[in-house]
Amino acid sequence: MTVQDWAAQRCTISYRAPELFNVESHCIIDERTDIWSLGCVLYCMMMLEGPYDMIFQKGDSVALAVQNPVTIPPTCRSVQKLQQPVSS
């Protein structure tokens, strides 16, 4: 509960790794939680909003949303550029 309370106080909810919402006894919290948050930051840099920001703003459960894969809108111009083959 200490780790869970710490995460609730210090981690932005829409960037928090799934394992920090319900920390189980003897759970290992390591650099993978930081990688999750980094992925959310990179997503935000590309999309100009975090992957779970709209869910949080609507008042829906971010803790449930992080259990599902993130979908990238197909109309995003940044994604279209990333999917183009790299020319040599």
Rank of each mutant, 00 (worst) to 15 (best):
S78Y: 10
Y15H: 13
D34F: 01
A17G: 06
I55H: 01
E19C: 07
C44P: 01
N68M: 11
D5K: 15
I29E: 01
M47L: 08
D60F: 11
I13T: 15
V62W: 03
K81V: 14
Q9V: 12
I13N: 02
V79G: 00
L20G: 06
I72F: 08
H26K: 09
I35E: 03
R77M: 14
C27G: 08
W36M: 02
C76F: 05
R77H: 09
L48T: 08
Q80N: 07
V66R: 03
I55R: 03
S78T: 14
C40L: 02
S37N: 04
H26I: 12
T71D: 06
W6N: 11
P18S: 08
V62D: 05
P73Y: 02
G59H: 05
Q67R: 12
C76G: 04
G59Q: 07
N68P: 03
R77C: 07
A8Q: 10
P85G: 05
L42H: 03
A8I: 11
T33P: 02
Y15P: 06
R10M: 12
I29V: 15
I13W: 01
T12F: 01
R10Y: 15
L38R: 02
D30S: 12
A65L: 05
G39N: 06
A17I: 06
D30C: 07
R16W: 03
E49T: 08
M47R: 09
G50I: 03
L38Y: 10
S78F: 13
I29S: 01
S88G: 08
L20T: 08
R77Y: 08
R16S: 07
C44H: 05
W36E: 00
C11N: 13
L64T: 13
T71K: 07
D5V: 13
Q4S: 11
M54E: 14
A8Y: 04
D53T: 14
A7Y: 06
I13E: 12
S37Y: 00
T2K: 11
Q67E: 11
Q80S: 15
C40M: 00
D34M: 04
M46C: 14
P85E: 10
F21Q: 06
M45K: 05
Y52S: 04
R16L: 10
R16H: 11
L48K: 12
F56P: 00
S25R: 14
A7W: 02
G59M: 06
D34Q: 02
Q83C: 11
I35A: 09
T33E: 01
C27S: 14
S88E: 10
G50V: 03
G50Q: 00
F56S: 08
L38V: 15
C76M: 08
I72W: 05
N68W: 02
D53K: 10
C40N: 00
K58S: 14
P85C: 07
K81M: 10
V62T: 10
S61P: 14
Q9N: 13
V41W: 00
T12D: 09
P74R: 04
D60V: 03
N22F: 13
W6V: 14
V70C: 04
S88Y: 12
A7G: 10
R10P: 01
F56N: 10
G39R: 02
P73W: 03
M54S: 09
C44G: 13
C76R: 03
M47Q: 09
W6R: 15
S88I: 15
N22G: 10
Q67W: 01
Q80A: 12
P85A: 07
L42E: 02
P69A: 09
D30P: 04
Y15T: 12
T71L: 09
S14D: 15
E24K: 15
A17Y: 01
